[in-house]
């Protein structure tokens, strides 16, 4: 009996720190976001006053062109970065698997960007993209080509933050696909080659179909990362020029800290969380259907 009582003791306190952190610093702040979304919060001299305003913030969000623009920009950003990094990451994984001499070095170097601080990634790309000192314009002028503004116009800035994100996070896709690739039974590949398939046929008809579950997992992960993105875009473009790269996290930061409007910022946050959850539910609903087809 004493063993059971002892178990009860350790059983509970082993879980308590986790529950306390999640409740006090996860759930409680979330509830404060919900509360503030229904009112106007004014900050005066360190104190905060809350005034109930009902659905006012949500009505404003419905009519806010900048919010809708920001959702669209985020959508483009998420789709572009996910697709490009999936293609490149899968290709790199297959190349590494085929290589003999470069395999070990590649497995090491190709991971670097994923562990570099996003802030430093921004610094690296400022040094590359800057029109005056950037290495990209230096290369262009050496080749006798006209120098570019890069982050100066809307389309260029958007292309640049997509390129930077792909450079930064393709390694994650690469690692996931490469470890799935290592898990493929070599007998399957031998069977394919015995049947007369050459290497590109084997890759296309045997390897890639077997990698699909890993590719799907990587796709979900990259979508989540894309929705969360903030650091590099904040430092490289601040959402500009104009609002051409104002992805959703940049918009919320601006509302909360530049306009000091915690009520509206909370409402926009809440709507964003809602959209993310609907997307998550859809993905979970679609997954079994895809699996049955495969």
């Amino acid at each position: 009996m004493s063993a059971i009582r002892r178990l009860g003791g350790f059983r509970f306190w082993s879980l308590i720190p986790f529950v306390v952190v999640a409740a006090v610093f996860g759930i409680y702040p979330f509830l404060r976001v919900v509360q503030m979304a229904f009112g106007h919060v004014s900050v005066r001299g360190g104190g905060m006053t809350f005034e109930w305003r009902g659905l006012e913030n949500f009505h404003r969000a419905l009519e806010d062109d900048l919010f809708h623009h920001s959702l669209a920009i985020s959508g483009i950003f998420v789709v572009a970065t996910t697709v490009i990094s999936l293609v490149l990451g899968t290709a790199l994984a297959i190349l590494t698997d085929r290589a003999t001499k470069m395999q070990n070095v590649a497995r090491n170097v190709l991971v670097w960007p994923a562990i570099i601080a996003p802030v430093v990634v921004s610094v690296v790309w400022v040094l590359i993209l800057n029109p005056q000192i950037g290495v990209l314009n230096q290369a262009l002028s050496t080749l006798g080509l006209p120098e570019q503004g890069w982050l100066g116009d809307g389309v260029g800035a958007m292309a640049a933050i997509i390129a930077v994100d792909v450079w930064h996070w393709t390694p994650i896709v690469y690692l996931l696909i490469y470890s799935a690739l290592k898990g493929i039974d070599s007998e399957v590949l031998e069977a394919a080659s015995v049947d007369g398939a050459n290497r590109s046929q084997t890759t296309r008809h045997v390897v890639i179909p077997m990698l699909l579950p890993a590719i799907a997992a990587a796709a979900v992960l990259r979508v989540v990362m894309g929705v969360k993105a903030f650091d590099e875009m904040y430092l490289l473009t601040r959402g500009g020029p104009g609002d051409s790269t104002t992805i959703i996290s940049l918009l919320i930061r601006g509302i909360v800290f530049d306009e000091v409007d915690l009520g509206y910022g909370s409402a926009v946050s809440l709507v964003t969380i809602g959209i993310v959850l609907v997307m998550a539910v859809l993905i979970f609903a679609v997954r079994p259907i895809l699996r049955r087809r495969a």
């Binding site: 996860g26 409680y28 702040p29 979330f30 509830l31 404060r32 976001v33 503030m36 989540v224 929705v227 969360k228 903030f230 959703i248 996290s249 919320i252 930061r253 909360v256 915690l262 910022g265 909370s266 946050s269 809440l270 964003t272 969380i273 993310v276 959850l277 998550a280």
Partner: peptide, 10 residues
Amino acid sequence: LIPPMTLVPG
């Protein structure tokens, strides 16, 4: 799952 920025006000 949710973007950390959406929790920042709270």
